[in-house]
């Protein structure tokens, strides 16, 4: 089966407080980068998976993202990238 490469971006929903992001923003100010208006921390998950087609890969990734990678109560997720894996990468 062909191999596909994907990246899923998991981010906190806008209504959810992000203390880690706030702490990081404060540290950025101490570094001298003080113009930051908003800083939110999420996760980028890189996945390689086998599937019979691009649509098949997308279906598996949607299931994975919705049920495992993200908690829909507090997080949004987006399939940022989905493409056939090339041999050299």
């Amino acid at each position: 089966m062909p191999l596909y490469r994907a990246r899923v971006l998991v981010s906190l929903r806008p209504s959810v407080l992000d203390p880690a992001g706030e702490a990081t923003r404060a540290a950025a100010g101490r570094l001298g980068v003080s113009a930051i208006q908003r800083l939110r921390i999420g996760k980028a998950v890189e996945v390689e998976l086998e599937a019979d087609s691009l649509d098949g890969a997308r279906a598996q990734l949607e299931l994975l993202s919705d049920r495992l990678l993200a908690n829909p109560v507090i997080e949004n997720w987006a399939l940022e990238q989905l493409e056939p894996a090339t041999a050299e990468a």
Partner: peptide, 15 residues
């Protein structure tokens, strides 16, 4: 600092 971002990453900037 809760080990946010990475362990020690925020503490590094403490005065």
């Amino acid at each position: 600092y809760g080990d946010y971002l990475r362990c020690g990453a925020i503490a590094r900037f403490a005065p």
